[in-house]
Amino acid sequence: MKSDLNVRGNITTVNIKRRHRSYERQKAVWGFIYVLPWLIGFISFFIIPLVTSLRYSLSKVEVKEGGLHITFVGLNNYIEAFTVHTSFNRTLVESITDMIVNVPLIVVFSLFIAVILNQKFRGRTFARAVFFLPVILASGIIANLESSSLIEAVQAEREGSRFLNILTSFELERMMLEMGVDDTIVSYLTGAVNRIYEIISQSGVQILIFLAGIQSIPSSMYEVAIIEGSTGYEAFWKITFPLVSPLILVNVIYTIIDHFSSNAMTDLIRETALRNFNFGLSSAMAWVYFAAISIILVVCSYLISKRVFYQE
């Protein structure tokens, strides 16, 4: 009787196991099917173009009747980009420094705003709606055209120079210099104040990510901190900051890739390809740009991930 039960039990376990294994296999098959559309696109719109573009950058590409003529020329395109092309070096350095200057500002600013928008106050919904507006409006063509608007430029000149610049940055600059702050830091910060619109308009998504991170911190932590008598300032540095620090890396990376969509370098690469039909040179430029960004990404990830605090 007892052994009978045992046997039956064994059979059921085996059955369940078999069913489970077949389910796992089924899942694996479906997983592949689900990923398949992306995989096809990944190969035909990413991997192949990536390899082709590398090949173009190493060859002379000519558009002739009957298609493209590709002749291997080694590193000539790269040499041309660095030594012959009139504006490549300057544009590359400018767009990279621009990125390096802006990334810390955007990340710090968006963390600060996220902390504020997480507090309770009247009109919070409205404030949030306003701060996420740039996510929608300040991207692509609208932002480009906006910066070239003549009326606003002139009016900013007319009203703004009196109102904004002198009031904020000039006074600020004098104050900080008198306090003995280093010259470069002063000009960095005042420059940031003058470009406040640019910084706000680029930090919408980052604010969202930080806000989501802050909200996932259990409120019991703050309750304990209050009972222990900590101030809000201390709570920020001891609780909020360590717990959202992994997101700083996410935001740094996001800010860097967000720069791809429109900057001087991108425009130059496009111009070289679509207007001058110099595909080889354009590809070489694109690869230099990619290499530069990869270096920055690797350095940032290394520096930040060493200091990041993970809860696990």
């Binding site: 719109f45 192949i48 173009p49 990536l50 573009s53 969509s261 690469i269 590809s283 694109a286």
Partner: peptide, 24 residues
């Protein structure tokens, strides 16, 4: 491994691959 490919598509600037995609 394929998911690492997804990350790669995020990190590579679209300008790097746009000529072959365009010609294709």
């Amino acid at each position: 491994l394929l998911f690492a490919g997804v990350i790669l598509t995020i990190l590579v600037p679209p300008t790097t691959i746009f000529i072959p995609v365009y010609l294709n």
